[in-house]
Amino acid sequence: MNFEYQTERYQSVQEPIRAIDCFKALTSDQKTRVENSTTILQFTKGETILKQGFVASHILYIEKGLAKLDVTNDSKISTVKLLGDGSFIGIVCSFACTNIDFSAVALEDTSIKMINMDVFVNLIKENGEFAFKLIRHMSSNTNSIVHRTSRLFNKNVGGSLSLILLELSEVYQSKEFTLPVTRIGLASLAGCSKESTINTLAKFHADEIIEVKDKHIKILKPESLKLIVKNG
């Protein structure tokens, strides 16, 4: 194996991989087994999808909707990731413990596919390509969570709020979106007070970085938000 080939292969491995790409590695028979072991559940906005401490009996996949992934430590709840369409819920924790070490809450009406854990584990053992893609996906998620947590740590209000707005824009794949939470909920996601969140949104609006109309957000200057995140 020459160096040029090694470099090319290394770069390709570093490309982010989506949850849906993992399923594409399954054979027709394996896809059928997944479908036969899947239950679809509907959750309304604000409803708890998973509660920390429950037995991990299924792998959860968001077919459509939005949820937040929370972890409780020392009686304090922290949001570690926002999850949109086509996302596994807590996949990086699902194989670590017998009991689920996180909770998930729907931020809007959400459709969830619950895949039997035993079937999922057997697919990992049977299909090397599926297992490899799943590892890549989980590694990417872990990297994202670590960097998100690190960036939010010790950020001022402007930096934290900018990060959340950019994250929502990425989840919705649009610079325009409707906030899925109240101002109090937004403050909780950013780890700030309600008053400072409202004041910062108003300042961003006045500075023409974003446009705010009730719950509707339009990001006018994404680069400005990124700069605030960097310096905040």
Rank of each mutant, 00 (worst) to 15 (best):
F95W: 03
V55D: 07
I77V: 15
Q14H: 08
T39A: 13
G84W: 04
I100G: 00
Q14Y: 05
T44Y: 09
S103T: 03
I62K: 00
K68L: 08
I91M: 09
I17P: 04
S57N: 11
A19S: 06
G65M: 03
E15I: 12
I17M: 10
L66C: 07
F43A: 02
Q42R: 09
T79F: 04
T27M: 08
C97F: 13
F54L: 09
T39L: 14
T48Q: 13
I62R: 01
V13Q: 14
D85C: 03
A67C: 11
Q6A: 09
S103W: 00
A19I: 01
A104T: 02
P16S: 08
F88C: 01
R9A: 13
F54Q: 12
E35P: 02
N73L: 14
V80Y: 06
S87I: 05
Q52F: 04
T27A: 09
F102S: 00
I91R: 02
L41D: 13
S103E: 09
T79E: 04
S87H: 08
A96K: 06
D101I: 04
N99W: 01
C22W: 03
H58V: 03
N99S: 07
Q6D: 06
D101P: 01
K68M: 07
G90K: 00
E47N: 03
I40R: 14
V80K: 05
E4M: 11
Y5I: 13
S94K: 03
S28K: 14
G46D: 12
F102Q: 00
L66A: 04
L69C: 02
R9L: 14
C97T: 12
